[in-house]
Structures are given as C-alpha cells and as structure tokens.
Amino acid sequence: MEKTNKIIVGISIGDINGIGIEVILKTFEDKRMLEFCTPVIFGSNKVISFHKKALNLNNSIHGIQSLDKIVHGKINLLNIWKEDVKVELGKITPDGGKYALKSLATAVDALKNNAINVLLTAPINKENIQSKEFNFPGHTEFLENELEGDSLMILMCEDLRIGLITGHVPVSKISELITPELIKNKVDIMHQSLKRDFSINKPKIAILGLNPHCGDKGVMGKEDDEIIRPTIAEIKKTGKMVFGPYAADGFFGSKTYEQFDGVLAMYHDQGLAPFKALSFGNGVNFTAGLNRIRTSPDHGTGFDIAGKNKANVESFKEALFSSLKIYRNRKENIELESNTLKSK
C-alpha cells in the first residue's frame, strides 16, 4: 500500500437488500470525494455489481484481496466472500443479516488492527442480524463490546449534538436504569468527546429531565428531584459546566438547545424524535467514548425504497465528512496533550 496522508475510511455495507450500497455508491459518484479520503468497502464484487446494475450506476470499483493492496485515488472493494448470494431488494432475509454482519465484523477487525483509520457503517436490520455472533440491540452496543471504552450514542448535525443516557432499551426499563452513576458516566464521555473530538475547550452540556415537566415537584414522578437534580449539582462541583434538568418539550420548542455544545437526553425517543425533526435528513450518528472512530447516517435500511434510486445520500455524506473531521481533531488534540506532558 502506497504511503499517503489520506485518511482510510472503512465502509461496512449494511443489509444487502437495503439502501446502504446505494448511498455508498452515490456518495462516490463524484470523483472529487476521493480527494478527501480513500474508501475501502467491505463486501463482495458480485453484490456490488448487482446494485450497480439495478441502479444504473457506473462507479469504477477497484477490487482487492487484502488490505495491503489498497490504492489511493480509487474506490477500493475488499472481497470478503466469493459465494453467490441472492439479493432480494426490499426484503428482510436471513442472508441480508448474515452478510451485513460479515461485512461489519471484518471492517471492525481492520479498524482494531489499524488497517483503516475510521469506520463508516451503512444501516443494518436489527432483526435479521441477530445470531450467536451478534446478540446486541444495534451497532453501538456491538462496537462497545469489540473496542475499548464506554460508548455514548451522539446524534449530530451542524452545532446540535444529542447524546443518550440510555440507548436501545424498552421504555418500561428506563426509570430503573437512570442512576447517578450512569448520568455521571455519560456526562464524562460527552465532556471528553466535545473537547477531544470537536475541539471545544469549555463545553456546556444540557441535561434533559425524565418525566413530563421534570416531574412538577413530584406530581408526575420523583426521579428528576431525587436523582437527576442532585447528580447535576455534584457534577458541577467538579468544574464541568452542566445545566438542567430541562423539560424536553420546552427545551426544543424554545430553541434553548442552541445555547449548548451538547445535550444529554434520558432515553432514545426523547432525543431522537426532536433531533430527526430538526436535522432534515442531514443527521449523523457518532459513537463517542471508544478508542476508534465510527459514524453512520441517521436513517435505517430503507427497504421500502431499496433499488428504486430514491435514497438520499446527504446523511451518509455528512457521516463521512464528520468521521474525517473527528479523526483530525482527535489526532491533533492527542498530539497537543502529549506535547504538554513532555514539556513538564
């Protein structure tokens, strides 16, 4: 592999029956994208060719058999299976999950071994990917198991970054999972990420309440007064600029979120529903807190439009550019921290 300063982006293809391959190929239709990075798709030439034909796309793909054969300036495809696989666009099939996992697992191994610099994941179906090797609610939990660190799912667009205190868990379990320890842990991860990955020296973090109107002094739940407020007060004593709890409806309705560098929501839909309403298809999912960088578009497999040439590539492009920016920021900040230590 030739030496270059270009960032190598490993790309898992997601469910082979969804829109993942479509957004990947359409992103790199513009050859100028290859000036920013070197993409490596983890998949199969036969599957990629099927999608190219179905979508009438003409991307020139450079097939490689090993990662030491990467060519910069080209769209590299690491062929990780040779068998014929039936692509059934728009359908949930066992093969859709099986080969999504094969692509993901191989890409994660490459990430762990520093063969790629960042990981960009196309959408999986959380039902058909379940197996002995993948018994997780989603990408985030799988990556936390494979990599070092504690994860925090952050959805972001422009200057809005929303992290989740609890992730892919049933609503019935949320209140029992909200503990001072969990809140402190997620605040620590977001605070560190805002500094290291986004180069914000003194991040301001807002924390949302759990109950409607933050419980209205116990009328609609006691967690906000008995757990969340005291925990925020404790965190403030460490010097971190954290504020809240805020009632989610008024917080987003009044655009209070614009005053903060990061927002922590108590549960999945509390954060993602307003985020997706505000992001207009340009959102990015970033897995913070781990020793490697992973981003993804904020949409799903899109089975209803798979193969119809209707998939919007903007979220995938934003995920790509975000991964490059985060990689550079993290590298620069790690170097600065290292030089500071050496000077003492």
Score class of each variant (00 low, 15 high):
M190V: 09
A306R: 10
L25A: 00
M33E: 05
I165P: 01
N114R: 11
R229P: 00
E144W: 01
K91M: 09
A100C: 13
I205V: 08
R292W: 11
A247K: 05
L208S: 05
K276M: 06
R292Q: 15
I61E: 05
A248H: 06
G209L: 03
G90I: 12
P123I: 06
T301K: 13
P123R: 09
I24L: 07
A122D: 09
E226R: 09
E337L: 14
K195Y: 11
E29I: 00
L160P: 00
D269T: 02
W81C: 07
I200S: 08
I70S: 10
E22R: 05
K186E: 11
D197H: 10
L89S: 12
P297D: 07
Y257C: 00
L120Y: 02
L324Y: 10
S44D: 14
E35A: 05
E226V: 08
M220T: 00
S322R: 10
E148H: 14
E35R: 07
S323H: 06
S322T: 14
Q192Y: 14
F252V: 04
P137L: 04
E144A: 11
D68W: 08
N125H: 06
L210E: 01
L34S: 00
M266Y: 01
M153L: 04
H213L: 03
I293K: 13
D298A: 05
N185K: 15
E2K: 12
I205Y: 10
I41W: 02
K342F: 15
N309D: 08
M220F: 13
A311S: 01
E133F: 04
K126W: 10
G43P: 10
I205D: 08
M153P: 01
K240M: 13
A248W: 04
L25I: 00
K6T: 06
S131K: 12
